[in-house]
Design a protein around this nucleic acid. Sequence first.
RNA 1: GCAGCUGUAGCUCAGUUGGUUAGAGCGCCUGGUUGUGGACCAGGAGGUCGUCUGUUCAAGUCAGACCAGCUGUACCA
Length: 413
Amino acid sequence: MEKLRTVRGVHDLLPDILHKQNLVINEGLKISEKYCYQQIETPIFEFAEVFTKPLGKTSDIVTKENYIFKDRSEDELMLRPEGTSGVVRAFLNAGLTQDIPKRYSYYGPMFRYERPQKGRLRQFKQFGIECIGINNSMADVEVISLGHAFLEKLNILDKINLKINTLGDSETRLKYRKALVDYLNDYKSELSNESIKRLSENPLRILDSKNETDKKILINAPNIIDYLNEVSQERFEKVCSGLSALKIKYQIDKNLVRGLDYYCHTAFEFITSDLGSQGTVLAGGRYDGLAKMLGGVDTAGVGWAAGVDRLSLMINEEFANKPDLVLMAVSENLEPLLMPIMKKLVDKGLKVEILITGNMSKKFKRANKVDASYAIILGEEELSKNIIKLKNLIIGSERLITLDEAIKVIKNL
RNA sequence: GCAGCUGUAGCUCAGUUGGUUAGAGCGCCUGGUUGUGGACCAGGAGGUCGUCUGUUCAAGUCAGACCAGCUGUACCA
């Protein structure tokens, strides 16, 4: 096919789907504003290091899913695969490390070179929030609570489960990592190829394996909960009891690992079974090490990102941008008089579609198609008396009245 | 990335063991109605059958490659 088309996994968002996505984003913005999160926007591409450093050299995003390119000045740039790194980078660049805490919300397109499917695109939209500069575990609870409230506003909470886990602090993870590797080394010959590779590179991610043999081996693997030092242990308990106090239901999933290196302590995912294998709809965690990885001052942070495309697939909203009325003239020479009328109607807050193609029959057919309730018709007869004809398209009745009267009738509907 | 399924009109789909000019419903356009819609009637436009290569006297139909979508898996939002 030599026709022009979009790149694989990159879709046009026609009005009906974009409208749904905007609803999702608007709910996100509204609820985050209530929690005093302020909207921020960062560039959709950055120096590649902004992502490669914090995400970790072994993450899929960096190794095979990236959109990296060089610009004309040979700078290595990368289309952003996620939002957090850019937001934290912006926070550091603005010199705000003394001005904490900061609560940010953002939305926009992200890019990952993946195998496209329903709910998985190469250009997709995320809405996310970041709470920067608070080490207190109550920030974790706040952030999860906000995510929960967001999904509640979208009216899809009943289709979603929350899973949480803790990755502990760096001391914990070092100890646990060693224990896990020791355990898994005994089964090295039975593990999947992917997991064998990870054993040396990023063993924690083996916990996430969906391979059946791997899963069996993992049943008796050491549990990170047993390796938590006192600080990490206490944190996790506080987060759990904080959620319970909010009556937010959750399941602890000890195999929940975030794919990105910068996470520590709390990790969580809101998961649905409605979207096939793309179950994760909102996910995040704590990323205390991120600011330092970017070369900035060590700053705590916790946040999440939600998949707007996925969420919009879950909400039932009919998109009807139907006009309050249609406006037409009976002959072409009267059409110039319609624009001032339209201006007045719009100024009064009405949604108007002006009909300037076809004969009267066509115009009424169009009015029908766009599901307008009223038609305002201007003809020679009406013009001479300085009135218009108002037709109620639902019951079919017509009245000759002034424009001001017509506006009142339409608005009283 | 790996595996499977699918691709015929704007949409949903039919198309027999390969055989004239590829069909239906819906939608669209024109007219029946020169100031009036939904229903109805009549007519019409719209397809290089995803693309390319091959097999054959003959390909929408068979084969291969590629492209795209979907499903699962990996991974992730």
